[in-house]
């Protein structure tokens, strides 16, 4: 579904050459939810922007359904970390969710259906007429998620979407993502720096090294599918996986510091 092969990215500016991504190869199967986790500053966002077609890669390629990505693919949606800046403040919640559908030429009746359905699924039916700045941070990120879901993407990319919300909101939003994913089975690539979050959400967790980034480990998360903040997180296996990923990241960090 989503194949990233030997992706390489170098930022070149006069007198400076920064190798952000060494070589990353990973694939996400149809309907899979894969979390990408790595030490801070490891080029997670660069990777995601390359996958989204927002940033040209220096080498290697990204394919969606076999089609190479050269610009933002038509059936891909992104939820950005900066929720406050990814919603249009001059539009209401409903208009924000509806705009991409209008551009996709979705008929009005279907559009209304999709907007209402997606707002309901994130629990914001009552806020449709509000402006984003009238909502809390967590609610704003829900709007961004509703917008992505209403777009009916084949691939959903999430760039540390919950990094800027408080812990309780974060837990709610994690469960929201799990529920939406279970209902729709949208192929999802979820980038985060939070190890717990990666293990809790992912079917697989891909651990990245520090920059220049490579894949250190592609770990299958063998936790039961029906996940729950309380029971899943208190499973011994959860602790083991979490500890394992943590050690890997520490290793990545140490490795990076040696360079």
């Amino acid at each position: 579904m989503l194949e990233i092969s030997e992706l390489h990215k170098v930022y070149v500016s006069p007198g400076r050459r920064v190798e952000a991504i060494g070589s990353v190869t990973l694939s996400v199967g149809a309907g899979e939810l894969v979390c990408v986790v790595g030490p801070s500053g490891c080029g997670k966002t660069t990777l995601l922007r390359c996958v989204a077609g927002l940033l040209p890669a220096s080498g290697g390629e990204v394919r969606v359904n076999g089609v190479p990505v050269t610009g933002p693919p038509p059936r891909m949606a992104v939820v950005f970390q900066e929720y406050g800046r990814s919603l249009f403040p001059w539009m209401t919640v409903r208009q924000n969710v509806e705009l991409p559908l209008k551009e996709k030429r979705v008929p009005a009746a279907r559009r209304r259906e999709l907007v209402a359905g997606s707002l309901e699924s994130v629990g914001l039916s009552d806020a449709a007429g509000a402006h984003p700045w009238q909502l809390s941070g967590g609610m704003q990120q829900r709007v961004a998620i509703a917008r992505a879901v209403a777009y009916e993407p084949e691939v959903l990319l999430m760039d540390e979407p919950f990094a800027a919300v408080d812990a309780q909101t974060r837990a709610d939003l994690e469960d929201l993502i799990l529920r939406l994913w279970r209902d729709s089975r949208i192929t999802t690539l979820f980038v985060t720096h939070d190890i717990d979050e990666a293990v809790y959400l992912g079917q697989r967790v891909v651990v990245l090294s520090s920059s220049p980034t490579t894949v250190m480990e592609d770990l299958k998360i063998d936790l039961p599918a029906g996940r729950d903040q309380l029971t899943t997180r208190s499973l011994p296996r959860f602790g083991e996986l979490r500890g394992h990923v943590y050690r890997q990241i520490q290793r990545a960090r140490g490795h990076g510091a040696d360079r």
């Binding site: 933002p72 038509p74 949606a77 950005f80 990814s86 705009l99 991409p100 551009e103 996709k104 777009y151």
Partner: peptide, 18 residues
Amino acid sequence: LDGVLADTCRMYGVRGVA
């Protein structure tokens, strides 16, 4: 203009007159 909003427009195919 905000870069994140510009990216949002690109991702969701908001271009041209819109």
